[in-house]
Design a protein around this nucleic acid. Sequence first.
RNA 1: CAAGUAAGCCGGGUGACCGCCCUCUUUUGGCAAGAUGCCAGAGGGGGAGGAAAGUCCGAGCUCCACCGGGCAGGAUGCUGGGUAACGCCCAGGAGGGGUGACCCUACGGAAAGUGCCACAGAAACAUACCGGCCCGCUCAGUGCGGACUAAGGGUGAAAUGGUGAGGUAAGAGCUCACCAGCGGCCGGGUGACCGGUCGGCUGGGCAAACCCCAUCCGGAGCAAGACCGAAUAGGAGGACGGCAAGGACGCCCGGCCUGUCCUCGGGUUGGUCGCUUGAGGUGGCGGGUAACUGCCAUCCUAGAUAGAUGGUCACCACUUGACCAGAAGCAGGAUGAAGGCUUCGGCCGUAAACUGCUCUCUGUCAAGUACAGAACUCGGCUUACAGGCUUGCUUGGCUA
RNA 2: CGGGGUGUAGCGCAGCCUGGUUAGCGCGCAUGGUUUGGGACCAUGAGGUCGGCGGUUCAAAUCCGCCCACCCCGA
Length: 122
Amino acid sequence: MGKGERLRKDSQFANVRTQGRAWACEFVVLKAVPNGLGWNRYGFVTSKRLGNAVVRNRLKRLFREIVRSIPTESGWDMVYIARNGAKTANYQQLGAAVTRLLRRAQILADVSEAKRVGRIQE
RNA sequence: CAAGUAAGCCGGGUGACCGCCCUCUUUUGGCAAGAUGCCAGAGGGGGAGGAAAGUCCGAGCUCCACCGGGCAGGAUGCUGGGUAACGCCCAGGAGGGGUGACCCUACGGAAAGUGCCACAGAAACAUACCGGCCCGCUCAGUGCGGACUAAGGGUGAAAUGGUGAGGUAAGAGCUCACCAGCGGCCGGGUGACCGGUCGGCUGGGCAAACCCCAUCCGGAGCAAGACCGAAUAGGAGGACGGCAAGGACGCCCGGCCUGUCCUCGGGUUGGUCGCUUGAGGUGGCGGGUAACUGCCAUCCUAGAUAGAUGGUCACCACUUGACCAGAAGCAGGAUGAAGGCUUCGGCCGUAAACUGCUCUCUGUCAAGUACAGAACUCGGCUUACAGGCUUGCUUGGCUA
RNA sequence: CGGGGUGUAGCGCAGCCUGGUUAGCGCGCAUGGUUUGGGACCAUGAGGUCGGCGGUUCAAAUCCGCCCACCCCGA
């Protein structure tokens, strides 16, 4: 994903953190908010508590690859926050977890159009 | 072959598809439009480490108007050399450890001064508890008083040179020999120091206690710093004004410079440069024991900024484990078969089936493949690290 | 990038600067007493790699070096 598809400013992260809704599992926390653009923007958070730089970079790359491969609705800012359990998980486990969270958040692309419109109006 | 020791090196590979960062090209498309610029696409090239880590030292670079002196503070500490510099490296000396190859050392000064040395012990810096020996009195092996002594005992981490002989009332460097230490002289070495000789006999430890001596050190750090853009109100109060205040760690002094300083309040958290060509790498020929260095040739090798190298699959490599099959080895089978030699007493000579073990080699399956991610750049140090490779040397065993 | 602090019994702390003689205090814990019983109180007791490794010293929680974990501050 290019620079336009990433959250890069502290103000952008702060916006998602305060305005967005959150869904969580044992590996990762997803926070998302509609951004009014025609495309999605992503941010990945790996705190120092998780491990050294190699561990944190690897988790970011895994999540970036997972998010890229899952088709979703457009127009959202999403922040993925890695939790401690993600350190030992592999690509397949994390992919399944992210898919579950996106389905619960109704951002996954196969969710029906009526349902999505209903949620936004609500 | 085994164990060890020193030095050095590597630290997964190949392919397919998808994706990221930088850069170049583009008669590809869109926007704006004189060159040009912005967005997207296509094609080419490049894209983490030996420690990129910890941030423990040293520098470059940038800013703080500036210069000099002193105090305080900090660092280093055998000698010589290397280096831009260092707390680093090399060589050497001394001391210590190891059978050895080799390794380790904060290794200046305790007659400059101050301080400390618990407990024990008579005594920890100047001393005499037990004891030894002599004299006098008492008296029949006891006691008292006085003088000498530091060999022996005991305490301690440490007790004032050690061993032997002479000597003496008993002893003592009191005398002598050797050893250790100290000082002078001579010789060698740039030096630390070493060797020789002579002398008088000497008289603890701690400076990672204060300290003394020698050498070095202005401060802050790429969020340094420069530019563009945006935003706010270029605001309020106070101090002192050439005898004042301030001038980049703290304090003092001298010169020099200047309206300076303090408090409150307000705005910004965007972009570009710095930003990778450097005490640079590689090779050759010289100098040097070496660290290192001179000359010549040649190469350009990451530049992100919520922070670029990843994901999936296949094959191979390595490690570990399991299992079965085969090969190999060992033990039983073997109280000596078959066979051979014979002086007829004996002697020589171990093949296989089968069973068990080893886990060396081949095959199959499964799991794993360390430590760890550039952030201004170099030189070091320290710490972490699966597994593997090369070379020299040492010790021990076996064979010839 | 720069600077500072902490680590000692289950918990919270002292001792460290100026090395030594029993590493101590409070709460908690165990046992006994007191009470009809509990609490409170009294008495006794257990519990320590002094964060780790190495060095200096006769001797280290204390001094020095390296490492680990946690916390805080400034630009």
